[in-house]
């Protein structure tokens, strides 16, 4: 009995040491990957700033690319903190929804064209503002647009409207519609389902929710957020 106990203890100690080594190795690989990503992102940000001051691209295009770079930086910070179970701290700001959607539309227009879709930005409601981290909201809106371009068809419409004290950011398409309820689709399924899980998480952390809305055809997804004054 005593010998068996020693053997079990030895095996458990060995297993713990193995798991610890593996976790350290994984954390080191993540740290290296993050380190390697920082250089190109820094250079790209500086190049974009220089291009902006030389008017080498329209300001809207510069703002759109800048938003995508900031989104990538946020993902990088999330990745760096993932081994310790953390994530980048939210930077809350008062955001004009119209400005955010304009930048998203500008970012995704070429991608939409490659998918054979039209990306239509509805006339934005002026002065609609929300209190959120712009980079996170860009993550959420970007994932909805990417899903619509991949799974939808025809036109992908992007818009926002105010509903009482709530702001509804909507992305709709002309595709076959959602294959399952939104709650089920927001749970990661193997390599799929992460996009909607991210959108749902961002909406929840910003005091809102991801919803699907009735639609005559295709999918119509809504990020509902509290309106800010």
């Amino acid at each position: 009995m005593t010998i068996a106990g020693w053997v079990v203890a030895l095996v458990l100690t060995g297993l713990a040491a193995y798991l610890d080594r593996r976790a350290r190795r994984r954390a080191e690989l993540v740290a290296r990957a993050c380190h390697e990503l920082r250089g190109p992102l820094t250079a790209a940000g500086l190049a974009l700033y220089a291009a902006g001051r030389r008017s080498e691209a329209p300001p809207r295009r510069i703002a759109a690319v800048d938003l995508q770079l900031r989104r990538a930086e946020l993902a990088l910070t999330d990745l760096a903190l993932a081994p310790s179970g953390g994530r980048a701290r939210d930077r809350l700001e008062t955001l004009k929804v119209a400005t955010l959607l304009q930048a998203e539309a500008e970012s995704w227009r070429e991608v939409a064209w490659a998918h054979g879709c039209d990306l239509v930005l509805a006339e934005p409601v002026p002065d609609v503002v929300v209190r959120a981290d712009g980079r996170r909201l860009s993550q959420a809106a970007g994932n909805l647009i990417a899903n619509a371009l991949e799974h939808g068809a025809g036109a992908v419409r992007l818009g926002a409207r105010i509903d009482g004290d709530r702001v509804r950011i909507e992305v709709s398409d002309d595709g076959p519609g959602l294959a399952a309820p939104i709650a089920a689709l927001s749970r990661p399924r193997g390599a799929r389902g992460r996009g909607l899980a991210i959108v749902s998480d961002v909406a929840r952390r910003s005091g809102g929710a991801l919803q699907s809305a009735p639609s005559a055809r295709g999918a119509r997804l809504v990020i509902e957020l509290p309106a800010a004054s």
Partner: peptide, 9 residues
């Protein structure tokens, strides 16, 4: 790239 663009700015 970082050095060049930083110097540019």
């Amino acid at each position: 790239a970082t050095r060049t663009f930083l110097a540019d700015n």
